[in-house]
Amino acid sequence: MASLAHPQQRQFNPYSENGGTILAIAGADFSVIAGDTRQSEGYSIQTRYAPKVFRLTDRAVLAVNGFAADGNMFVKKVKQRLEWYRHAHAKDMPLRAIARLIQTMLYARRFFPYYVYNILGGIEEDGTGAVYSFDPVGSYEREACRAAGAASSLVQPFLDNQIYFKNQRPAPGTSHPVHLPLPTVLSIVIDSFTSATERHIEVGDGLEIYVVLAKGRNLQGLEGIRGMQELTVTEDGERVFVVRRELKKD
């Protein structure tokens, strides 16, 4: 029986889950950050184009996945903090500092969390490609690759196998490479998303792949990629590119 002491109320649920998947892979001198563009709720597709991957600076790209309203608000606040940093220090915030900033901002909401998984990719100050992944309350680590979101359970094992060579034995007298070349990484990313689209109903419609190249790195492996567009204006710093592809819409 319902208690009479307190008025009975239906609880309002301030969260929702908007599907989609993101992933990022770090190379020796580049970083690739990708996400699909479908936004859904339940069995309904809300829109076929809602970006989940955002360029923060010329060397940092952030992918957000989970509750879309929280994600958009979080990205907005991170961008705001980065702008303040630029005004105060006349330079862009370094990647590892952005990572710590994100952890602090997420943990600040420990008791009413942003229901969002974040993956930050870009170029470190020493010129290496980096990926940082976060949980919704701010636990984070630097990794070589990470998948998050609706199809993370499909994609992460694939990346473990293809990037970390888990359960693979190198041919006698050889060893596994520590970093993969850019064309290989791009193929793995595209295959990950076409496969996730086949097997997960919340993944599909469009694919956005951001590529961040370290300072001075040539375009090796990017030339001739279909649907590629440069987002940076100068060639003497880190460079950011985006590749847009279609995914199946069913």
Partner: peptide, 12 residues
């Protein structure tokens, strides 16, 4: 564009 009680937005 759309917005609802959760603050979820999208356009199509």
């Amino acid at each position: 564009s759309y917005v609802d009680l959760l603050g979820t937005t999208y356009s199509a």
